[in-house]
């Protein structure tokens, strides 16, 4: 849950990057950490296991400037994507304000994307959060791999399979090159702040 500090004109929200293992969640954060230096408000914390796979989470604090006089801060987290770390994913999701679902565009990962989205749905349900209500953005990652000869899923097909019912904003991206990474972040921040404004009227309270 977002932290609103009206005394200090500050709002802090939690954004979680979710998705199957190896879909590029950590790569998204690494790119943001490296290229959005002005907004990065601290060290990126990563805890890897064998083979560079996230064990607990990655964490990146950001300062996104002032909106209607209010300092907007965001904490970006990733979850471990591997199936066996379900309990950790549940922990990291606690208090989430916005979610970026990083889907893998590789054809062979089609089923993993769907399973991970289902897992997200179930974990949110446990926390009494409706996946249709929480700010959510889908990112179709690894689009650059087509050039290297990897068979990718057509965007229309991914959209049909993952976003047919959700109907949330979706973006194609390549976290490795950075294409679409900033847009994804900006999209989820817009949705989250709009949602929090609707829920808590923080900007209004602040301006009065």
């Amino acid at each position: 849950m977002a932290i609103l500090n009206l005394k200090n004109n500050e709002i802090q929200c939690k954004i979680v990057y979710y998705g199957p293992g190896r879909s590029g969640k950590t790569t998204n954060l690494e790119f943001i950490h490296k290229h959005f230096t002005k907004q990065v408000a601290g060290k990126m914390i990563s805890i890897d296991t064998h083979g560079d796979r996230t064990l607990f989470f990655d964490f990146l604090p950001m300062g996104l400037g002032k909106i209607k006089g209010c300092d907007v801060k965001a904490q970006l987290y990733t979850v471990p994507g591997q199936v066996q770390y379900r309990a950790t994913r549940e922990l990291v999701l606690k208090g989430v304000d916005g979610i970026v679902f990083v889907a893998d565009s590789l054809k062979v990962r089609r089923e993993k994307n769907m399973m991970s989205l289902k897992d997200l749905h179930e974990n949110l349900k446990k926390m009494s959060i409706d996946i249709r209500r929480i700010p959510l953005v889908l990112q179709y990652n690894k689009r650059d791999l087509e050039k290297q000869g990897f068979p990718l899923m057509p965007l229309e097909k991914m959209e049909h399979e993952l976003n047919r019912q959700l109907k949330v904003p979706s973006l194609s991206a390549s976290a490795l090159t950075g294409a679409g990474v900033g847009k994804t972040l900006s999209q989820i921040m817009k949705l989250t702040l709009k949602y929090l404004q609707k829920e808590f009227h923080w900007a209004q309270d602040n301006s009065s």
């Binding site: 190896r22 083979g51 590789l106 062979v108 690894k142 791999l145 290297q148 000869g149 990897f150 068979p151």
Partner: peptide, 15 residues
């Protein structure tokens, strides 16, 4: 074999 090696570089070992 090329495809298998590409997946390996992506860490997709099962694939």
């Amino acid at each position: 074999i090329k495809e298998a090696e590409l997946y390996k570089t992506q860490g997709l070992l099962n694939e």
